[in-house]
Design a binder for these strands. Sequence first.
DNA 1: TTCCGTTATATACTTTTGTACATAAGGAAA
DNA 2: TTTCCTTATGTACAAAAGTATATAACGGAA
Lengths: 260, 260
Amino acid sequence: MELSSKLTLNMLGEPFLLEKRIELLYAIEEYGSISKAAKAVPMSYKSAWEAVDAMNNLSEQPIVQRETGGKNGGGTTITPYGSQLLETYRVLKEEHTFFLERLSQVTDIESGAFKTIGRLAMQISARNQIQGVVDTIELGAVNAKVSLKLKSGNRLVSVITKEAVENLRLEEGDRATAIFKSSTVMLAVPGEMQLSARNSIRGNISHITVGEVNAEVMVDIGHHDVLVAVITTDALKTLKLKEGGSIMAIIKSSDVMLGR
Amino acid sequence: MELSSKLTLNMLGEPFLLEKRIELLYAIEEYGSISKAAKAVPMSYKSAWEAVDAMNNLSEQPIVQRETGGKNGGGTTITPYGSQLLETYRVLKEEHTFFLERLSQVTDIESGAFKTIGRLAMQISARNQIQGVVDTIELGAVNAKVSLKLKSGNRLVSVITKEAVENLRLEEGDRATAIFKSSTVMLAVPGEMQLSARNSIRGNISHITVGEVNAEVMVDIGHHDVLVAVITTDALKTLKLKEGGSIMAIIKSSDVMLGR
DNA sequence: TTCCGTTATATACTTTTGTACATAAGGAAA
DNA sequence: TTTCCTTATGTACAAAAGTATATAACGGAA
């Protein structure tokens, strides 16, 4: 028993982008003509033409440019606006597919019970949400220590309750997301002291936003992963932080939540 | 421009539960017969009968019980198993609808950009996820203080960055979820001391699980809202906590994240 | 001018899906 | 036994959606 669902983008109440049409657009992009694309999909030329026409009419800007006559009899090409739309749909669909997978996992269809904790589609205020792969899980009596290996190679340790690990059905090798508030990220100049905190990650300051009381420091830890720390402007001055400088970001493992 | 999508439950590759069929099942539940239900939906009797037959064949256990002949000529009723399936579908659909709404909000279809922070469909390890309504938002230079009014009437204050408030597009009156780790919940016997922590919520201990080092205490704060605190077993003894006892749960506002 | 492959458009056909309607069979109650 | 209303089943019909096919118009290149 599994879930399925097709994503449709509507415009003025009319269906606008559907899976079949998207498939056609990709074929047009590849072959440069509606007729060849129709054969490739496959569908009849008439259906294909009507679909393209409907999309072009519904859209604010044209999605494809059609030319009749000419060197090779003409042809049809996707406009930059159309490409953008294709890309948008791709991302939306990916997110949707991911959601359905997660929803299936979380549901016990026979009993109708939800094994999840909390709502599924939620945005979280935490600025720091970093993906990684579960490296090791050490189960204690009540707590569990989960080590996440980030793309940058750094390891980030999270301490959560054992029950939370079970609820998430986390296992070594799973992809997971480390979540922590920017206010829990401390900064230190490298090579000075040894801290008890388990997570200390080296990076470079990519941006500093100074406020009256607090300042926001973005730390690039490599491979497009960026941490955000909020510290006092006093601390900023004391540490003499500057954009481009090297820095250690320190996060208590008990401040790190996990998501998957 | 908006997103839409219909949720289908498949069984052995065949469509099993679809929106139309669910509608029909609800009508059968109401009228007690396929023929009346078909009129109400509306659809032809034959379509209705075939839909019901297909579902009953695909399902492990029968979804409806059909009887021909008898006092009123017979009739069709939903089995308990069928009711359960209806309820499951209802919840799944609700979650799906919510996801689509959120996905629409988060997407700027014209530019194809995502205004979201992080992935949408995520489960979070935090045990404490409590729904409420945003009461007040006080914007500071960098931080924002958001007060959430819970079903129980209690208020829970969260301090997050101003930018997070903007990203979530939080406004007063919005529903939101307070998220915090069980290890950040402290417990105190009522009426003893005044704490600096903004959030102190009175409740009753509904359950205690004692481990070797730590203990998990569940605090019922009313209206089916339950907080989970993990404290040391030492603290448990010192405070002489017992199930049923009255207690204060204390949470630092900077430990509370928000989701919506 | 002719040739070519395409878009644009119309028409006849096919397939799919659902509707309308007729009819048998069931079984309790009057 | 008759009445009643339903399930169960088949057949003819209708509407919608897609296919196949034919043809005009187009415009650059030979």
